[in-house]
């Protein structure tokens, strides 16, 4: 697993529209590096003979019947949006970005 550096964090922050100060970028790069390191140690423990696990409990087929439940109003849907227009989320131009 590749290490995470400050540029990676800045790039992700831009994609996710999260504003981060230089100080925050430094701190986050350090914290994420620790997490990546920790995950790496798991990879070392699990050899080729250990199947990948996506869920800790051996459950299958947890289903829901096809019955309509609750919904939001447009107002509720947009209540946390930074910007909206005519009942829809308004987002910055897309192609200007990475």
């Amino acid at each position: 697993m590749a290490a995470i550096n400050r540029d990676d964090v800045a790039h992700l922050a831009q994609l996710a529209h999260i504003e981060m100060s230089a100080e925050e970028l430094d701190r986050m790069a350090g914290e994420l590096a620790v997490i990546v390191e920790s995950v790496k140690s798991v990879s070392e423990a699990a050899g080729d003979d250990v199947p990948a696990t996506s869920h800790p409990i051996p459950l299958t087929n947890v289903f829901r019947e096809d019955v309509v439940g609750h919904t939001f109003t447009a107002e509720q849907s947009l209540s946390g949006a930074p910007d909206a227009y005519e009942g829809r989320f308004k987002v910055p131009a897309i192609l200007d970005e990475d």
């Binding site: 227009y85 009942g87 829809r88 989320f89 308004k90 987002v91 131009a93 897309i94 192609l95």
Partner: peptide, 10 residues
């Protein structure tokens, strides 16, 4: 999408 000022999402 080219030259758009902003986009609306439903």
């Amino acid at each position: 999408i080219q030259g758009a000022d902003y986009s609306l999402v439903d």
